[in-house]
Design a protein around this nucleic acid. Structure first.
Lengths: 211, 211, 211, 211
DNA sequence: TATGAATGAGAATTCATTCAT
DNA sequence: CATGAATGAATTCTCATTCAT
């Protein structure tokens, strides 16, 4: 007879589930209150877990935040990599990146807030934490630009290391509006298009290039 | 009638001075540690003032941060307004804005950190605080773009409200590198030029426009 | 009839063994860290047993300590009784007691630490626990003195109840040095002899009595 | 007109008073419960002080205990030194030491408990804390013995470093009874005399020496 | 105005113990 | 008998703010 544990799953969560539940709760609470105002008890409650349980999966509150980062960035990187792969043209990839980024944020505003607020904090209060994932994410942009330069559609003088930041910064600042304003003034598509157009025109050799 | 307070100066600092001393100290400490890790006592020490004295000039720690924002943004706006006034051409103004912004940050890194980190936090922990000054600053950019559109050098489809954020975001993200990395990889001028060029080309009707 | 459990030994330890393993582990950890800093988990690990298993053999952490006491004191009393029996002369028995006590501690320092530190604590945190075994041990000394008084070699004015404590205290304090100092300044034999001589001379009617 | 602050003293305690009040409270509570079971809040209450106030005077709970040690040992050493000075004869000094020690403990049982219990713990949980004061106290005994050896009344073979411990141990163990038993079986004087006699006879060249 | 000692609410973390498997 | 994940009460310490001087 086969094990019927399948329905048990709903009653008692397996370890992996619990860690995830905590991370989900942390995402929500951190986004809502920010790292310092978020209380561990609150996160525990949100995750329907005892306070102490959190410490079975994470060393401390900081570690919880960092783990959350990693998880989030891994997801984003995976989804973005996937999205980009679909589009071979470097210039069009810029448009894809912009739209995907803003859509990701728009789908999960908590995520946007975390990136917005905590990524900055992190560099302060966790000097030791090298945000590798974030660097990876930025490098997806750098790669697109380099590809464009190699294939002769993006200006050679452009420094990918600067441009990647400018582009990310533009999107990130834009996403702040998306996240914070309850009535989003600028639609995601519109914003993505505007930013894409600026950067494509700004980076391309042929200024008439379109997203 | 001249102020008669002159001789008092040597004995005891005038109220205005003390408020400034506290704000200076707060700038330094907040930048160094971030709002939550900065201790009021520490700021008091840095300002050579008793803990209680801070509460004679500010309602509480939050108020101190907000007052600091106001002060900082007022300064920046004044300097930026001044810088822009010198240059009538909208497209060239974009270049001026970029360079001035990055130079301001580079001159006073504490200021850069505050803008970077705390401006994001602020939206979290002070829902009530409408960051008017920051909006004003962004609108300096919007105004440049609008002017450019009116004088026919910037594309009409550009939405100033989006573009201003994209441009600020690009500069802000760039300034993070400037502020955090001890050995700045990209020089202020170079960065300013790169970003200017992208945005000028990206926004202008004549794609050959130069900063 | 021989025990038939022999083959089981390789697979699973017999109950008795497990209890002993836990007590051994407790001895080591309690000695190393003291009662409060010793963690149940740690003891479980040292005993290669699950945390919960400890509660199958002992009611709680306190009970574990008390059981450990009993075990230790039983052992010591047995060994000391044996050692004393070999020597009929009351005065010489004092020397035997001293040497045996210090040797026991020296052989197993953990045991010394437990007696040193926890026996004192115990009177604090376990008011209800009457340390019967310890009283028994002290009474071994009292008995020696009484015997000496009866056989006319020890002064009649000596109050055995006081003398037993003085003697034990002297040995115990000495053993603290033995236990704590990595390079024992005073050798066990030398210390035993010194203390014996003081007490024999101090208690005996004939002051020239030798250990 | 002279300041009338004298009566104010009773209303508001000066810094020094507050530190003392906390130490007094700590002495009582530590003695009652032992270091680990004593709660900081409890000590604060006993001292009629806010929890936080304790941390204005001491770094942490450990530091409070150590400071308490220092204070206690300083006092004891002072009183003992004074008592010994009155009596020039080394052998008689042994009697003085014994009586003074037991009287000190008897006067302030809390003090006795602290010495009993925490001095042992201390060697465990504060490896870094070198109990200098305690060493000093022991050396008062060593000095007496050395003096006795020099003046030819104490046996040369006696090792002061061992004898001082034996003597202290005897007194200390005796004081445990004094402290713990509500109905002290052995009077302080009787106990002091018994122990003195043993050690004087045990150490002296002339065995007939009397306390 | 200025001081800084005192306050005490608040929060992260620990760990003995339980109990479903 | 054995396990070890989960629990949550309990505790130390911090620090913004106050207020008597």
């Amino acid at each position: 007879m086969a094990t019927v544990k399948t329905d048990n799953n709903q009653r008692k969560s397996r370890p992996k589930d619990k860690r995830d539940k905590i991370l989900q709760a942390a995402l929500k609470i951190f986004a809502q209150k920010g790292f310092y105002k978020a209380k561990v008890t609150e996160i525990a409650q949100e995750a329907s877990v005892a306070d102490g349980t959190i410490y079975l999966y994470f060393n401390n509150k900081h570690d919880l935040l960092i783990s959350l980062f990693e998880e989030i960035m891994n997801n984003i990187i995976k989804r973005m990599t996937e999205a980009i792969r679909q589009e071979p043209d470097p210039l069009k990839r810029i448009g894809v990146f912009a739209l995907t980024h803003l859509q990701l944020i728009d789908e999960n505003k908590d995520l946007g807030v975390i990136i917005q607020v905590e990524i900055r904090q992190s560099s302060k209060f966790m000097k030791e934490y090298k945000n590798e994932r974030f660097a990876q994410y930025l490098n997806l942009i750098a790669r697109i630009i380099e590809d464009g330069q190699e294939s002769g559609v993006i200006r050679r003088e452009v420094i990918p290391g600067v441009a990647k930041r400018a582009f990310f910064g533009a999107l990130d600042e834009m996403s702040r509006v998306l996240v914070l304003s309850p009535h989003k003034k600028y639609e995601v598509f519109s914003a993505a298009e505007q930013i894409s157009r600026i950067f494509i025109s700004g980076l391309a050799i042929d200024p008439k290039a379109q997203p």
